[in-house]
Design a protein around this nucleic acid. Sequence first.
DNA 1: TTGAAAGCGGTACCAG
DNA 2: CTGGTACCGCTTTCAA
Lengths: 356, 356
Amino acid sequence: MPQSPKLPPPPPSAPPAAAPHPPLPAAATSADVARLAGVSRATVSYVLNNAEAVRISEPTRRKVREAAEELGYVPHAAARSLRAGHTRIVLLPTSHVPAGPLYSSFLNALQWALRRLDYTVVQYGSLGLTGDQAARAWAELRPVAVISLGEIVLSAQNVETLKRAGARAVITLGPVGVPGAHACVMDQAEVGLRAAAHLIERRHRRIGVIVPEEEGLDLFSAPRLEGARTAADGVAVIEPLPMAYTEESARALAARWRTHGPDAVFAYNDEYAMLLMRALQDEGLRVPEDVAVMGADDLLIGRLLRPRLSTVRIEMPTGDHLAALVDRAVREPSEPPARHDLMSATAVPRESTRTA
Amino acid sequence: MPQSPKLPPPPPSAPPAAAPHPPLPAAATSADVARLAGVSRATVSYVLNNAEAVRISEPTRRKVREAAEELGYVPHAAARSLRAGHTRIVLLPTSHVPAGPLYSSFLNALQWALRRLDYTVVQYGSLGLTGDQAARAWAELRPVAVISLGEIVLSAQNVETLKRAGARAVITLGPVGVPGAHACVMDQAEVGLRAAAHLIERRHRRIGVIVPEEEGLDLFSAPRLEGARTAADGVAVIEPLPMAYTEESARALAARWRTHGPDAVFAYNDEYAMLLMRALQDEGLRVPEDVAVMGADDLLIGRLLRPRLSTVRIEMPTGDHLAALVDRAVREPSEPPARHDLMSATAVPRESTRTA
DNA sequence: TTGAAAGCGGTACCAG
DNA sequence: CTGGTACCGCTTTCAA
């Protein structure tokens, strides 16, 4: 729909040149169908939309249907929604889509469920936009709902912009709620808390927490670190350990371990844990005797490693669940924005941490 | 935009009830801005779009800008594109988004690059639609380009529907080209071919090929299997081995290995390879002495395993590359749909297959 | 330099 | 039961 957003200053491409060679017949409009069927546009609309309010004779219906078929008529969504005054767009902003398999399958399910409910999911890349810019850009599409993953921090102001533009529901999935928006909190802090608690219970008092250096993950890693701190609260000390998802980075970290290393580490997730554990083992340290290693996400790889990786299992809401929630919010905008806690986390003890 | 697609028969939700409690002031239109600024709607349009063709006095510009600001004016994308006769939508149908990290980061990059080029990426969940249904559903949005991942098989007919609806480029990424569409072939067969060739070169003559049981992967696994067959061509025998991405499935397969197993296996990708290799090892088989194992995708995990996993590295086109290609196709629809080979694959020998 | 007005494609009201 | 018609919000001639 948008054709030349004025918003941020990207290098816009020149306007498309006029169509050249095979001047394909332009798309048929409802007027064309009407003409061919020998009826009015109104009738075409009634028939094609199965309007209940009005009775059209069977012969007429058939004529219209056939004409539409013959012309390959496809209604124009923009025109329709312009007239209707609202869309069925659910806008899903994405900057960095976090790579995790968990998360991406969740998003897939969500999209699928929304589609079933007859919404059109528009994934809008919003990398590098501020809350204000983003809100306006999104508002142009007049989405009926916005599901913000929390990568962009929305102000109450921004939420209002969206609502005034027709959004019946603004839902944030991030760790923090926004005034005016429905908050479906997926509290990543819980993950860090469970991990740290598990380690503390096993008498570890110096706990390293891997903080991925990859950008775009802060939204997950920061709360996880915070959660660990909460669990530690006086009884243990938490040491943030920056690490990139590369062998070199893991090796460098492992090399310093004998002298500086804590005796337990929460490795952000199973993938980082695998990487670090390998480096630790190559360095000659024993897991869990010398270092306990804890992952998160309960990926299959964790069970394949030796020692088997202790982890934090995360219960994500199903996509259908969230989709239903969106649908309800859209249909009952009267209900005040509520706050739902959708995520839970539990520690799964395996071999890479000692038994309690 | 769509508000009640008539297409497939999904359980549609009831139309949203009228807004209830806090009757938020409706979104401001350009007419509102014009009124507040004391000018005409035309002037508003000129100012806000920085129209070159017409000179507006500085004081007027400021008045308009301030009025727009004050009202929180956000242009209506649907109205704009209706008037313009075209959109900047790039439609990206998705059914099952293939899970692989490679692929998902490629898609991310693509979206990002398109956004930079000023396109709006609409991800449209198309699960369970036939080519005909899909083409019509997509055409409703009047996208300027469609990038089909190949999960849905388009006919020449369908491509025409899309083009008539304004699509200047229909691009398929799948393994097969469609008449009338630009084909950016990412030939998965190449992957299987490289893997099998690598194993054959190492004197393996019975080569198992893992075929994931997970649905949605056939588009990748089938060509990979075919490619392996091509490489084998008489000199070796290829045995398709169905396996699910679960420990049980891998274990069951491994249990039969001593009696029935081939002496080499191409495991579809590194993740399946890891799973299978673990099961094989637990079964007491040695890798690579008893069984050579080959993965694909060159994931980091492959280097962390012991033995280190031989794999096939895939060079995907960068997202920017494809985005540029889309942009070119949009701007020069005169150029006949071309066929681009975008993917290349090379074997990376490591420890899980014998040295040549 | 600015304003009036004609649509873009559909939908829905009101007459006939 | 069907046709005429007035919009939805925005861009863009054409006149003034």
